[in-house]
Every structure is written in structure tokens, then in C-alpha cells.
Simulated scan of single mutants.
Amino acid sequence: MACLPEGMSKRKRLYTAGLAGLGLIILVSIYKCGFRSASISGPEDCFFCDFANHRPSSRGPNPNLEVETEEYVIFKDKFPAARHHYLAIPKEHLESFSVLNRSHLGLVQRMELGMKELFKSKNVDPNEAIIGFHIPPFISVKHLHLHGIYPASDMNVLNKINFFSSFWFKKSEDAIQDLESREL
């Protein structure tokens, strides 16, 4: 059997390790989604709906709201991936990005703008932030939520993969473009 050149062998090992790692992350994400979402079925027992609408939650105290409008709220993520990690959630219960149509375009644009304005108020350039949605089944809570994260350099390897623009995470500008092409 012929030996591969050293560079080719190293590249093959890195590629294999990368694919194995990605596979593991996908399996863990699917497991987490199934585990968490089993207890959330609709707006009446959705703790994000509780946060957004100032209702007491059985999951402890509601987070401090950084921004509140008639349509959405923004608050600090309970499990931040970086120094600045916020979630924008609509007050209306919408399960995920997948259920949205073109009529939701304005809401998504306003949530994105609100997230960018919050970053500016924190002296963060919003163009340097990661802003986007996870796509089912890679969601941790069945209530639409827009992530805003900065700086990416604070993120560990798993979080960098988790919030990498891909089939499981859609950056806000791509999400808006997608909604523009959806039917009403």
C-alpha cells in the first residue's frame, strides 16, 4: 500500500475530524431540541410569552428587559455565548422562523433594527455583531427569537459553529431576503 504524502494525510485527518465534530454537534443539537421542546407546546405554557407579556413564570423571575416595544422585547440571554448576547422575541407567539411568511417581514426588520440600536447604545458596532435565527429543528425554545451576539472572539468553538451562517442558523439579512420571497 502506498503512503500518502504527509500534507495530504494531515489534511485528510483534519477533514475527517471536522466532519466528525460537526456530526456530533448536530446530534447534540437535535437531542437538546427534543428534550427542551417537549414541555413547550403553545403560548399558554411558553416562558418566552411570559417574559414578553410580563406574566409570572414557573421558571423563575423574568429577565430584565433591555428594550420593549408594542411588538417585541429584547433581553440578555440566560446562557450567553459572548459578553453581549441578547434575544429579541415577539410578544405574539410564533413558533419559529419556519412559520413566518411575507406578512412578518416588517416585524423581523423591526426586531433586527431594535437589536442593532441596542448594540449601538452599548458602544458596539452592529455590523461586527452576529445577528440571526436558528432554523428548526435546531431551536432550543419553540418561540421565535433573534440572537444578537458580540464579540465573536469571546465565543468557544462550539458556539462559533452553532452561530455560523448555515442551514441551522440564518443571519438576519438572509432571513429578511428569504421572507421577501415567501408567499403571504
Score class of each variant (00 low, 15 high):
1 M>V: 13
1 M>Q: 03
2 A>H: 10
6 E>W: 03
8 M>L: 15
8 M>T: 10
8 M>V: 15
9 S>P: 00
10 K>F: 14
12 K>H: 06
12 K>A: 10
13 R>E: 15
14 L>D: 11
15 Y>L: 14
15 Y>K: 13
17 A>S: 09
17 A>L: 13
18 G>S: 14
20 A>T: 15
21 G>V: 05
24 L>G: 11
25 I>L: 15
26 I>C: 03
26 I>Q: 13
26 I>G: 09
26 I>W: 04
29 S>G: 13
30 I>V: 12
30 I>A: 09
31 Y>I: 11
33 C>W: 11
35 F>L: 07
36 R>E: 04
36 R>K: 12
37 S>E: 13
39 S>C: 05
39 S>E: 11
40 I>G: 01
43 P>I: 02
44 E>L: 08
45 D>C: 10
46 C>E: 06
50 D>F: 00
51 F>Q: 06
51 F>M: 09
52 A>V: 05
52 A>F: 12
52 A>G: 07
54 H>W: 12
54 H>G: 08
54 H>M: 08
57 S>F: 10
58 S>D: 13
60 G>W: 14
62 N>F: 11
63 P>F: 09
64 N>L: 12
66 E>W: 00
67 V>N: 08
67 V>W: 07
69 T>I: 06
70 E>Y: 05
71 E>D: 14
71 E>S: 09
74 I>E: 06
77 D>E: 12
79 F>N: 06
80 P>A: 04
82 A>E: 05
83 R>P: 05
86 Y>N: 08
86 Y>S: 07
87 L>H: 05
88 A>C: 04
88 A>W: 02
90 P>K: 05
96 S>C: 00
97 F>N: 02
97 F>R: 04
98 S>R: 09
102 R>L: 04
103 S>W: 06
105 L>P: 03
106 G>Y: 09
106 G>R: 12
107 L>T: 00
107 L>S: 03
108 V>L: 07
108 V>T: 01
110 R>D: 03
111 M>L: 03
111 M>E: 04
112 E>L: 02
114 G>M: 01
117 E>W: 01
117 E>T: 00
119 F>K: 00
120 K>M: 05
121 S>E: 01
121 S>A: 01
123 N>Y: 08
124 V>L: 10
125 D>H: 02
125 D>V: 02
126 P>K: 04
128 E>W: 05
128 E>K: 04
130 I>N: 00
132 G>I: 10
133 F>E: 00
133 F>V: 08
133 F>T: 12
133 F>Q: 02
135 I>W: 07
135 I>V: 13
138 F>G: 05
139 I>N: 12
144 L>D: 09
145 H>V: 01
149 I>N: 10
150 Y>L: 03
150 Y>N: 04
152 A>W: 08
152 A>C: 03
153 S>A: 12
153 S>G: 09
155 M>S: 02
156 N>R: 13
156 N>Q: 08
157 V>A: 10
158 L>Y: 09
160 K>A: 07
160 K>G: 00
162 N>S: 06
163 F>M: 01
164 F>E: 06
164 F>K: 12
166 S>E: 07
166 S>N: 06
167 F>K: 11
168 W>N: 04
169 F>K: 01
170 K>F: 08
171 K>A: 11
171 K>L: 13
172 S>W: 07
175 A>L: 10
175 A>T: 10
175 A>C: 11
176 I>L: 11
177 Q>N: 15
177 Q>Y: 11
178 D>T: 15
181 S>K: 14
181 S>Y: 00
